[in-house]
Write a protein that binds this DNA or RNA. Structure first.
Lengths: 144, 144
DNA sequence: GTATGTGCAAATCATTTGCATTCTC
DNA sequence: GAGAATGCAAATGATTTGCACATAC
């Protein structure tokens, strides 16, 4: 399987754009942990490692990463979007605690079937889906 | 079935808060159409009808409406949240066109079963779910 | 060499907040 | 009459943009 960077380089080449060390640093950092991320947090992680990358460069890169399918929007919370890298993962959904933010990822093949059914019924060309279940985790529901 | 306003009045009373004509106007406007709404659009709709309601009043009301379950967040798009009224509707999910924004609502009982399964498996107390399928509608996929 | 990408600072846009005033209970 | 809610204007925070400079191709 191609690495994330290779996928991105190919995309850049096909589009006639230019690659830069900043972009590779950002992508490297996104894939450095399994966690979800948001722009500010990603920026701080890069800064901590003494990498000189500005926030606008991150904001400008995100649409391309979405387009390549390397990342996707995960959820909107605390006034901003949170993303996750999906390249190399199976598609998954989220079970998220409203109180502490704990997130569990799970796979659900039945949703793919449902997607196909909808595509047919409504004559849509499906690009993806987001299934988010919210509630209280074991610990938090005990203290409600 | 109680009207939306009655539900809200009851909530206000129980909480020891105060009701106002502004709040009733906002709620009335939210339920005046079947469409989704966002704050700015709702504000303009009220303005057009010569109703004097400020945006902060809308913003301050929304958390209460979410708490009563009269409305819910529908999706984040164009830099802000979109809501929909759900009181009196069956729970539904969205199929949305990425290009033109056309949205189809559909019901899916199987998701409730899935929710229950997850609740058991991960020991969560489930509050709700959001299932959003995105793609291109018939018209838009023709012009890709 | 060209024109894309970068960082900075300023602008924009959604949302929140402080505050004086008004209104509900 | 006390405390909530309102509207306004200012503050905040996320994101975007203009621009001069750097650099990838």
């Amino acid at each position: 399987m191609k690495s994330e960077i290779e996928v991105f380089r190919e995309f850049i080449r096909e589009k006639g754009l230019r690659n830069t060390p900043e972009r590779e640093l950002i992508i490297g950092e996104i894939f450095a942990t399994h966690d979800h991320f948001d722009v500010d947090e990603l920026y701080l992680r890069l800064k901590r490692k003494k990498h000189k990358v500005s926030k606008p460069s991150i904001y400008r890169l995100i649409p391309y990463l979405l387009e390549t399918g390397l990342i996707q929007e995960a959820y909107f919370e605390d006034g901003h979007l949170h993303y996750e890298h999906i390249y190399g993962h199976e598609h998954h959904c989220h079970l998220r605690c409203i109180k502490c933010g704990k997130t569990i990822e799970f796979q659900e093949k039945s949703l793919i079937r449902l997607e196909k059914k909808l595509a047919e019924k409504y004559d849509f060309s499906i690009k993806g889906h987001k299934f988010e279940v919210t509630g209280y985790c074991r610990k938090c529901k005990a203290h409600l």
